[in-house]
Design a protein around this nucleic acid. Structure first.
Length: 352
DNA sequence: AATTCGGGGTA
DNA sequence: TACCCAGAATT
């Protein structure tokens, strides 16, 4: 640690960093892994409740490995990026049943785990096992791009290599875990994306972006995200106290979660009962019943998609015949299944 | 190398 | 709205 940046960073961390989180200082690799997966692309405040929920329900990796899929997905419900949950389960079972319950303890072996990439492997390796691997997350990209005045796009392979090398070069090898924690805290508290606290920043004198007045132009991203609009018509089919649902299985949003009978239209939304009936005829030939309610239009803004949808309530006169993907389940069993936020938000405010 | 995977907070 | 968040996997 013969460089000025790291010396100042570690000193700032020791004297001025009061950020506290339940996994800070944690040495149990299972807990660290769990927290890191939950926090992938997720703000600390958002992930916090989920972390406690998981630790409560699954205190050890064995508990998680033995849990039924649905119970784990229910725990993850609402957090987003559901492949993380699938990979979490897969990795827990690998560790418990195929690796004698031993958590992998080297960067290389951690990197092989499903759902563990360069960031998470470095985080676990440094926090749990004191190994010298620098983390590279959104905070680190931002701090280093500003400090060194680098405009290489961070969402390019070149940028990733460059910043990985930089971070690794700055790492305090005598306490890599503390250094990694410190640089992320520093990015979250001081070197924020918007309105960074440059006036109280200990790195400001040597920060290229601050000295030359382009803090707000960094870091650079090359790709602009583009959003597509989707139109979902959900049919809430009820027969007595039973509802028809299915699990989403395609490579698409909300994979592994459940949903009502869905008609996705290319053209837009319609609340016209005749059109809704015709659409339902195509999805579920032979259904007999009545539309009782058509909801208002609901919207959800995702990173890459804008979802618009409405909910059509249908009372069936008889159970559906087989030959479709949906299954019938009692109302009270719905509570144990994981649904997308788009649906749970509707259920919170509307009786079915 | 480019896309896609959620959901929510913030300016 | 647009951007961002303790990224990773797939195409």
């Amino acid at each position: 640690m013969q460089n000025n940046f790291s010396t100042l960073l570690m000193n700032w961390n020791r004297t001025r960093n009061e950020r506290e989180m339940p996994w800070k200082g944690e040495k149990n690799p299972y807990r660290i892994w769990l927290s890191e997966v939950i926090l992938q692309q997720t703000r600390v405040e958002q992930g916090l409740a989920y972390y406690h929920r998981f630790i409560d329900a699954f205190p050890t990796v064995q508990d998680l490995a033995l849990a039924p899929d649905e119970k784990v997905f229910k725990c993850w419900e609402g957090l987003g990026y559901y492949s993380r949950c699938r990979n979490l389960l897969s990795t827990a079972r690998y560790i418990a049943f195929e690796n004698n319950g031993n958590f992998p303890s080297t960067y290389e072996s951690l990197l092989k785990l499903k759902g563990v990439g360069a960031y998470t492997a470095a985080a676990i390796a440094s926090f749990a096992f004191d190994q010298p691997f620098a983390v590279l997350d959104g905070n680190v990209f931002r701090v280093l791009s500003r400090y060194f005045g680098i405009n290489t796009p961070i969402d390019s392979p070149e940028g990733k290599k460059l910043f990985t090398r930089l971070a690794q070069g700055l790492l305090d090898f005598s306490s890599p875990g503390t250094f990694n924690q410190a640089i992320m805290d520093f990015g979250a508290i001081i070197c924020k994306p918007k309105q960074p606290l440059c006036s109280e920043c200990v790195q400001a004198p040597d920060c290229q972006a601050f000295r030359h007045g382009f803090v707000n132009q960094l870091p650079v991203k090359s790709k602009a995200i583009q959003k597509k609009k989707r139109h979902f018509h959900f049919f809430i089919l009820r027969y007595k106290d039973n509802y028809y649902i299915r699990q989403r299985v395609n490579a698409d949003i909300w994979k592994d979660l459940h949903e009502w009978v869905l008609w996705e239209s290319e053209s837009g939304l319609t609340a016209d009962p005749k059109k809704l009936k015709r659409a339902l005829d195509k999805l579920i030939p032979g259904w007999k019943g009545n539309i009782t309610t058509v909801s208002a239009v609901h919207r959800q803004q995702l990173t890459h998609q804008t979802i618009e949808g409405l909910f059509t309530h249908v009372d069936l006169e008889k159970p559906l015949e087989k030959s479709h993907a949906y299954r019938s389940i009692p109302k009270k069993a719905l509570a144990d299944l994981a649904f997308p936020r788009f649906i749970t938000r509707y259920l919170e405010k509307h009786a079915i």
